[in-house]
Write a protein that binds this DNA or RNA. Structure first.
Length: 357
DNA sequence: TACCCGTGGGA
DNA sequence: TTCCCAAGGGT
């Protein structure tokens, strides 16, 4: 069986119409790849459309304020990507004469562009014959050839890269790479794959051995560790106090509240010390809202909010917002956004008391 | 190399 | 409820 021709045929019949496929310019493909990393199409698509609307060109993105880029990225997660996106746009405009790098190797110079994204851009935009190996390709190839080397190892990455290179369609690498990813996303899916109508069902090793659900093999499984957040919410006549989060760590660069972050549940003394450092009075039960649970890939968060109505004496680098419209200029993590939406600037002024809150 | 970094949907 | 995982890259 000729795998590339089968794939390309399937792709021509079944590919989704996606906005960046209509005009596969380097800017469009790059933007889509940055947004879609570790993200489902359905989740990232609205963000792609927003970015294209607000920043139609790489020049406009490069000239933007970082806060506006972060705000537009709000809710998409992996916020370092937004900073890298902005940084790379400035690289293209200021260091590369406004032109995107023209080869796989040169594309790797862009912040946030790794082996996967560089291969995708180079093959789709420049027809450069470099294989793309993403989560879809790992899954498809591991099942098709019965490769049981763990994909999350350096050996695994090398083996899958070589396998993808071996079957790569050099005549049309861009379509071939997209076909593999699209096939993995639509047919060779993680759960309940469409083996019944799969064009490779007669040659698929995993299907023949009845082990489709055992591929791809992964060696490690990171467990989410507990994280306790205690946030200080200051609401006075000046409005709501916001503070930009640190450059590193969870929700880097986004806006939020001064927050005590601990791996174990803090005692009352630790909490009052934290408030004391900010020049705030004792946090007592009447000020507390929570707990809220919030799940990240690698963290299980328990969050509490402590609401104060007096200005803190010793908080630096803060800003005030007084209504929903003003806060929409700042990117907030979902956890904070939901809290603000419900308890601070909620459309329902007074939340209906319930036993759960 | 190992670990860090979000969110939402589905089983 | 809990877990998996999705067009990965940075450090």
């Amino acid at each position: 069986m000729n795998i590339p021709s089968q794939l390309n045929y399937w792709y021509s019949k079944n590919k989704r119409t996606l906005p960046w496929r209509n005009s596969p310019t380097p800017y469009n493909i790059w933007l889509s790849e940055m947004i879609m990393q570790q993200t489902r199409i359905a989740q990232g698509l609205p963000y792609y459309l927003k970015f294209k609307e607000v920043f139609p060109t790489v020049e406009m993105l490069a000239e933007a304020h970082e806060r506006d880029v972060m705000q537009l990225w709000q809710g998409l997660g992996y916020y370092r990507r937004a900073r890298n996106l902005h940084h790379a746009a400035k690289q293209v405009v200021h260091e590369m004469d406004g032109r995107f790098p023209g080869t796989y190797k040169e594309l790797l110079q862009l912040k946030g562009v790794g082996p996967y994204s560089a291969a995708a851009i180079a093959s789709i935009c420049y027809n450069e014959p470099v294989p793309v190996v993403d989560g879809n390709v790992f899954r498809f190839l591991s099942r098709l050839f019965g490769i049981d080397t763990p994909v999350d190892t350096s050996l695994g990455k090398r083996i899958f890269y070589e396998q993808a290179a071996a079957i790569l369609d050099h005549e049309n690498p861009g379509d071939f790479n997209q076909a593999m990813m699209e096939f993995g996303a639509l047919v060779c899916t993680p759960a309940q794959p469409g083996c019944k109508d799969c064009p490779f069902s007669e040659v698929c090793v995993a299907l023949r051995t009845g082990a489709v659900d055992q591929y791809p093999v992964k060696s490690k499984r990171t467990k989410a560790t507990p994280l306790y957040l205690n946030s200080v919410v200051v609401q006075t006549s000046r409005g709501l106090m916001l503070q930009q989060r640190p450059e590193t760590g969870i929700w880097a660069g986004l806006y939020g509240f001064p927050t005590l972050e601990t791996s174990t549940k803090p005692d009352q003394r630790t909490l009052s010390d934290f408030c004391e450092q900010l020049g705030l009075p004792e946090p007592n039960k009447e000020k507390r809202i929570g707990p809220f649970s919030h799940q990240l890939t690698h963290r299980s968060i328990e969050a509490h909010f402590w609401v104060f109505n007096e200005p803190p004496a010793r908080v630096k680098d803060y800003t005030w917002v007084s209504n929903k419209k003003e806060i929409s200029n700042f990117g907030l993590p979902r956890l904070f956004e939901r809290f603000v939406d419900k308890y601070i600037f909620g459309t329902r002024e007074k939340p209906v008391p319930s036993a759960n809150e």
